[in-house]
């Protein structure tokens, strides 16, 4: 460990070697004790513990509002969403996660109007890159703060984002 002369080295260096040897021993012991003092501090100070008991703290746990968990489409109380079916999200997505299936509604004026039939979202393909949210011109979709996505069958991860029977909100073009 020491870089001094070997034990059987020249006699003249013997004394210096001995001094160095003792110094090495003492500095080693000191550095060990310093480390042990630090770990001993943490052993006795349980307030420093930082771990969370995850499944138990589900109620109190808050994810930040920007957390990218999965893509959802908010609906208001009248079961209306803001999606026009413009497919901007579908184009923005790098993985083909979103598929927009469109249909044609008849407006009260008797005109045909493009609307979404289904907005299919493949959670299993999604990388939560947020590009679809940024691309959406009408703020129809957003990221939800969920993260417990495990299911037993991957087909359950393919979701339809718009509620059955939902309509587009008035005034959203």
């Amino acid at each position: 460990m020491s870089k001094g002369l070997p034990l059987w080295g020249r006699f003249g260096g013997g004394f210096m070697f001995l001094i160095n040897y003792i110094k090495t021993v003492f500095s080693t012991v000191k550095s060990m004790l310093v480390g042990m003092r630090r770990t001993g501090y943490y052993f006795t100070h349980h307030k420093e513990i930082i771990t969370e008991e995850y499944p138990d703290n589900r109620e109190t746990m808050h994810l930040p509002e920007r957390f990218k968990g999965e893509v959802v489409m908010p609906h208001d109380e009248k079961n209306e969403h803001r999606c026009t079916g413009c497919t901007a999200c579908e184009l923005a997505c790098p993985n083909g996660t979103i598929k927009v299936v469109t249909k044609f509604d008849i407006t009260p004026e008797g005109k045909k109007k493009k609307a979404i039939d289904k907005l299919v979202y493949h959670l299993e393909l999604c990388t939560m890159c947020n590009l679809c949210i940024v691309a959406c011109p009408s703020d129809a979709i957003k990221m939800a703060q969920t993260f417990e996505h495990s299911v037993f069958d991957r087909s359950q991860l393919t979701k339809v984002l718009n509620n059955p029977g939902s309509k587009i909100m008035d005034g959203v073009e």
């Binding site: 994810l63 930040p64 920007r66 957390f67 990218k68 990388t127 939560m128 890159c129 947020n130």
Partner: peptide, 24 residues
């Protein structure tokens, strides 16, 4: 990172032209 970028490891926050969202 989670608060500002919405993710802890793979943020995808810096985009061509600036950053994706303003800081929290």
């Amino acid at each position: 990172m989670e608060e500002t970028c919405g993710a802890r490891l793979t943020m995808n926050y810096i985009v061509p032209g600036g950053v994706m969202q303003d800081i929290h």
